[in-house]
Simulated scan of single mutants.
Amino acid sequence: MPGYDPERLNKFPQLTETQSKQLQEASLRYPLESFLMNYRNVEEIGIDFVYSSAKLEGNTYSKVDTINLLKMGITAGGKLYSDAQMILNLRDAYNFVLTSKDKAIDRYFIMDVHSILAKDLLPAANCGAPREDLVRISGTDYSPPVGRDYLNEELKYLLEVAGTIKNPFERAIYLKLNLCYLQYFQDINKRTARMVQTFSLLGNGEMPLLAGYVKSSGYIEAILEYYNTGSYVPYLSWFVSSYRQMVKSLTDSPTITKSRSVDLRNNNN
């Protein structure tokens, strides 16, 4: 059973020259400002992001169920309360990261994100708090570290290393995979890491990756590969492919430019 290797935190993801060029071209093709000023895209892409993120966790809400819940507040009959709560929490976390551009990525920010995602899904004492117990991860024999003090030390070091990575995409990917690897919280680590990856790119003026999170896309396989071997290669490949596809989809579709504050909660269009 592979155990936690602290040396993983010293290894950076390294995009190939081709991958770096592809991301740069995609980023220039659809800059962050274009996204944030297009309220319809913020809303619709946010719904897709929430839906796919929930689906990864086994949520039973369909896309129509998700739209009805987020736009009209209608829960799906015969579904678990926890499924609706997960979707609402993902929506709230999405809003939070989009409207927190002046915040730094520190332990308290990550704890805040987790608290939003874990609301009414975990006991209140576990929301935003480092875990004390051993956890298992489906699909891998990897055994994460245990102990609040040790987890706090490792998270502090992880964030220090992330701050030294100049390439914004490599920094976001480093945060994403190593927050997953550390398993700082009792549960909801991958969702938290996904939101932190999103916020990291936003904070560096880059359009975040908000698409491609589906079971058949290779995303889960890339995460498991990192748990098992520490290789960034599968996730880098998946990320670049998904990012380019997302930008192509956005730029091939008609856009509506409308400046308005970003908040999915009060819009029923």
Results as ranks from 00 to 15, higher is better:
Ser143Pro: 01
Asn152Lys: 06
Gly147Ser: 05
Ala104Phe: 08
Thr255Pro: 07
Met37Arg: 08
Tyr227Ile: 03
Ser249Cys: 15
Asn269Ala: 08
Lys55Phe: 07
Gly212Ile: 02
Tyr30Phe: 12
Thr75Lys: 15
Ser20Asn: 11
Asp263Phe: 03
Gly230Met: 01
Gln14Lys: 14
Arg194Pro: 02
Leu122Ile: 09
Gln197Pro: 00
Ile47Lys: 01
Arg40Ser: 08
Lys101Asp: 10
Tyr181Ile: 08
Asp149Thr: 12
Phe169Arg: 04
Glu17His: 04
Tyr219Thr: 04
Leu9Glu: 02
Asn126Leu: 12
Lys21Met: 05
Ala93Ile: 01
Ala84Val: 09
Glu25Lys: 14
Leu23His: 05
Ser100Ala: 15
Leu179His: 02
Lys176Glu: 05
Ser217Leu: 00
Phe35Ala: 15
Arg91Thr: 02
Val262Trp: 03
Gln245Ile: 13
Asn178Arg: 11
Ser115Leu: 01
Pro6Gly: 05
Trp238His: 02
Leu23Tyr: 09
Gln186Arg: 15
Ile220Cys: 04
His114Phe: 10
Tyr39Ala: 03
Lys166His: 13
Gly73His: 14
Asp83Leu: 03
Asp149Arg: 08
Lys11Arg: 13
Ile110His: 01
Leu32Asp: 07
Ala172Gly: 00
Gln85Ser: 10
Val196Ile: 15
Lys71Tyr: 11
Glu33Ile: 12
Glu57Cys: 07
Phe169Asn: 06
Tyr61Ile: 13
Arg244Leu: 12
Val113Ile: 14
Lys258Asp: 09
Ile87Tyr: 15
Ser242Pro: 07
Leu264Lys: 02
Leu210Ala: 09
Arg107Phe: 10
Gln19Cys: 04
